[in-house]
Write a protein that binds this DNA or RNA. Structure first.
Lengths: 214, 214
DNA sequence: CCGCATCCTCATGGATACTG
DNA sequence: CAGTATCCATGAGGATGCGG
């Protein structure tokens, strides 16, 4: 199995990152370098032997590198592996119609995944200046900082401290799928602090336009 | 198996198009709608039962639709399925360092795959005006028409008529991987007819910059 | 605990044969 | 031509073991 034996960029990409779990490992490493146990926690259901094997392959192919850390090691993307960010971003943007239906039963949710999704939408909107938006909903309170150099999403320390949120409500659903404007968010009980015009520019028009293809 | 059960655009995308062969089926349909037998021919090594199953799933998920044709039917992408073009394009651009090594032993090559790759590079370069370039090399003669509305690559009828080229030489290798400038092409014996500046703009700088991350 | 390696079961993929 | 049906090899998923 393994290789398609085709001289084609798509086929060769799939030879490299097309195996099950591989692209989700990359997703985790796009947020920050991770220890083995962090990857296990971020990939619900993965078998540890499989994860170990994938990491070996990714290192062999020059996509991931292993770095020494105090007590143990961490896995990080190489510069080339970092280039997969735009691949994941295009997947996230394409998937908006499928995400707009909200989480399915038994779907898990991690705040880190929202981070990647925001990057994808913001890269698409090509925000020209820095802005900060705070969003409060039933599950947690996020502070989103967006600018030309990148995006940061952090949970407010005064809110719930757990990293994992299960069964997110409609607000986080809509936020992650990018189909809500700030006014619609307010109508659903959210409190938005910050530059409302900038928030709308990021989540409003572009995201709504994308969902029309559904 | 099947689903990752994660509320994440990457994971849900992979639930939809992450199975083996699925994205290569999409690649074939991005060129033009295809009959079942055309898909079999365009996907060397695929099992017909697997292809049949994938097509059923893609229709169920709204990515592919079946259309009636004279004697039989053809498979075509839905508008949403067409949106995967940018996903494949980002894969092709990311894969340039891996493609630059040239075809591996037993790699097959179809001219249609070059078509998709050119689309990816041209979308990246965001060519502002239409241009036509003809490229002659040992294996075949292509006429490339590029413009804001898209790209067309066709084999010149006076050249070899077969659609499939096996074991392409270094010229097609370099062309598909996007690492050659027009002068380097000429140095390897290629004849380039048309707007050399435009050709360089398309294949030169941007592609070379991308290979630096290798 | 972290970072795997081993073992086992079963779903999936690959190759071939066959049918409307 | 356009798929189904069948069989077998492979890889995924899950539990467990084990050295540092």
């Amino acid at each position: 199995m393994s290789s398609y034996h085709q001289f084609c960029g798509v086929a060769r990409s799939l030879d490299l990152i097309g195996d099950r779990w591989t692209l989700l490992i990359v997703r985790e490493l796009l947020v920050r370098p991770r220890r083995f146990s962090e990857l296990v926690a971020g990939l619900p259901g993965v078998a540890t032997n499989l994860l170990s094997g994938r990491l070996t392959e990714l290192q062999r192919d020059g996509i991931v590198e292993r770095r020494l850390a105090e007590r143990g090691s961490v896995y990080a993307l190489t510069p080339w592996g970092e280039g997969l960010r735009e691949v994941l971003a295009s997947l996230i943007r394409w998937c908006v119609p499928a995400m707009a239906t909200g989480p399915l039963k038994d779907d898990t949710f991690h705040a880190d995944w929202l981070h990647i999704a925001l990057d994808a939408f913001l890269a698409d909107a090509r925000a020209a200046r820095s802005t900060t938006v705070a969003l409060t909903c039933a599950e947690a309170r996020f502070v989103i900082t967006a600018g030309p150099e990148g995006t940061k999403v952090r949970e407010d320390p005064d809110a719930r401290a757990e990293a994992e949120l299960r069964a997110p409500g409609p607000l986080l659903t809509a936020l992650a799928s990018g189909v809500l404007t700030v006014d619609e968010l307010a109508a659903r009980g959210a409190t938005v602090e910050g530059d409302r015009a900038a928030f709308d520019a990021i989540f409003g028009r572009g995201a709504l336009a994308r969902t029309e293809g559904s």
